[in-house]
């Protein structure tokens, strides 16, 4: 199996508070890793260190063999291969949906206007939002915004996609449409790291589920064993509350 991300002895503290406590893990190509756990357990912080939105206090993260925590590494070069989807979508409100999607590919991948537009149209068709192409983000529902945010990341042809609680800010009836897009991505063998509270999604789509608690991978297993036979007291108490 090809290693995509390798995390070694990763620590992150905010002031005196140790949020990530010596994490070691490897994410292989094609993995769908779901991170679950109580709030404050370090899930989001861990995810955000993977593309250096949070700078680790110590430890290394290797992406395709390159140590991204090294200050000599050009992080912009790394980030264009790591897609990220946020809880609050973070679409650019002053740009149309098309412009939201084509800005980065045109500036970074140097795609021509036509190529970028065609690619955006193709992706929008896939998520059923082609009729919104020339509207502004504030005219979309939450679910639509998140689908646009996902395809905006896909425009860069990332090698891995990071999802930071992508459905937590959505009305319940819109969660499904976003999860469907993510399931399709998983079927296409996209490597994904997903922080989520959607246990159903983790069960169905992930090949690994990890329980982050007190800054550590307290328990990790295949979804079947993770949910049916959790071998960890804190995880048991967590699952009893959320399932």
């Amino acid at each position: 199996m090809e290693k995509l991300l390798e995390v070694k002895d990763l620590c992150k503290s905010f002031g005196d508070h140790l949020v990530l406590n010596h994490i070691n893990t490897t994410i292989n190509k094609g993995d769908v890793l779901c991170l679950v756990g109580p709030s404050g357990g370090g899930k989001s912080t861990f995810l955000r260190t993977l593309n250096l939105l949070e700078v680790p206090t110590s430890g290394q993260i290797y992406f395709e063999g390159i140590d991204i925590t090294n200050s000599k590494t050009n992080i912009d070069e790394i980030r264009k291969k790591i897609g990220m989807v946020f809880q609050h979508f973070n679409l650019f409100p002053h740009l149309t949906i098309l412009e939201n999607m084509t800005l980065a590919p045109k500036k970074i991948l140097k795609l021509s206007e036509d190529n970028a537009n065609n690619k955006a149209k193709e992706l929008l068709k896939r998520v059923g939002l082609i009729d919104k192409i020339n509207t502004y983000p504030n005219m979309l529902s939450g679910g639509q915004k998140q689908r646009v945010a996902i395809v905006r990341s896909l425009m860069m042809n990332p090698d891995v996609m990071l999802f930071d609680e992508p459905t937590s800010a959505l009305d319940p009836e819109m969660v499904g449409e976003v999860l469907d897009v993510m399931k399709e991505l998983a079927r296409e063998k996209m490597t994904m790291v997903v922080v989520t509270h959607e246990m159903g999604f983790a069960k169905e789509v992930a090949n690994r589920v990890a329980f982050l608690d007190e800054g550590q991978f307290a328990y990790e297993n295949t979804p079947k064993l993770f949910f049916e036979n959790p071998n960890n007291d804190r995880l048991k108490s967590f699952l009893s509350k959320v399932l």
Binding site: N51, L53, D76, E77, R79, K80, K81, I82, G83, M84, F86, H88, N90, L91, F92, L103, A104, K107, I108, R152, S153, M156
Partner: peptide, 15 residues
């Protein structure tokens, strides 16, 4: 401007 705008731009690979 919301910090998420900067994070979204940077995570796309923009400088």
């Amino acid at each position: 401007i919301d910090i998420g705008q900067m994070e979204a731009g940077r995570s796309l690979g923009l400088s």
